[in-house]
C-alpha cells in the first residue's frame, strides 16, 4: 500500500510532468490564461490520462508482452490514445451530458498532449503493474493540473504588471514557469 502512495506522490510532485519532465508544455503555455479554463483542462487531463494508463498498460501486459511484440508499443499506444479520446467524447456525450459539457471542449486538444503518451511509455519502462500504472497516471495528471492552475493564477496577476516590452507574452510566461520549476525542486527531498 505504501509503495502505491509513494508512486502517486512522486508522480504528482517530485517528478511533476510539466516542471521536471517537460511533457505537455503546449497546453501548459496555451490554455493557462484563466483559472477556469485551466481547471477544465486539468479535469479532462486527469480523466483521460488515468483511463489511458489503465488501458495501455493492460494492452502491454496482456497482449504485447505475451506475444513478444514490445517494439510495437509506440504505434499501438498512440492509436489507442487517439481512439480512446474519440470514444470517451462519444460516450460522455451520450451517457453523461453534464460532464461532457464541462470537459467536452478540452478533449480534442488532449490527443496532441504528449503527457498522455509520455506517461504510458514511462509506465512500461518502469515495469509497473496494472494498479501501479493507473495510480502513476492519476498522480501525473494531478501534478499537471496543479501546475497549470497555479500558472493560470499567476498569469492573471501578471496582466496588471509592468513587463518590459521585449519580455511581454511568451518570455515572461517561460520565466514564471522556470521559477515554478525551482519551487518544485524543493519537493525532491520528499521521498
Amino acid at each position: 500500500m505504501s509503495s502505491i502512495i509513494l508512486i502517486a506522490l512522486g508522480a504528482a510532485l517530485v517528478n511533476n510532468v510539466i516542471l521536471s519532465q517537460f511533457l505537455g508544455i503546449c497546453p501548459f503555455l496555451g490554455v493557462s490564461k484563466k483559472v477556469n479554463t485551466a481547471l477544465g483542462m486539468g479535469g479532462a487531463v486527469i480523466f483521460v490520462i488515468t483511463l489511458s494508463s489503465f488501458i495501455t498498460s493492460s494492452i502491454y501486459i496482456f497482449i504485447l508482452a505475451k506475444f513478444g511484440l514490445e517494439y510495437l508499443e509506440t504505434i499501438v499506444f498512440i492509436l489507442v490514445i487517439a481512439a480512446l479520446v474519440q470514444f470517451v467524447e462519444m460516450v460522455l456525450k451520450k451517457m453523461m451530458p453534464t460532464l461532457y459539457e464541462a470537459l467536452g471542449v478540452y478533449l480534442p486538444l488532449i490527443t496532441t498532449n504528449c503527457a498522455v503518451l509520455g506517461v504510458a511509455i514511462k509506465n512500461v519502462q518502469n515495469g509497473y503493474n496494472l494498479v501501479e500504472s493507473t495510480v502513476n497516471g492519476f498522480g501525473a495528471a494531478v501534478g499537471f493540473t496543479i501546475a497549470i492552475v497555479i500558472m493560470a493564477g499567476i498569469r492573471e496577476r501578471i496582466e496588471y504588471n509592468d513587463v518590459p516590452p521585449s519580455f511581454k507574452g511568451m518570455p515572461i510566461v517561460l520565466v514564471t514557469a522556470g521559477l515554478m520549476a525551482i519551487a518544485f525542486t524543493g519537493f525532491s527531498g520528499l521521498l
Partner: peptide, 16 residues
Amino acid sequence: APGAFFVLACLVAVQN
C-alpha cells in the same frame, strides 16, 4: 529543469 525555461525565455526576449 528550471534553466531550460530561463534560457528559452531569454532567447525569445532577444528575438522580440
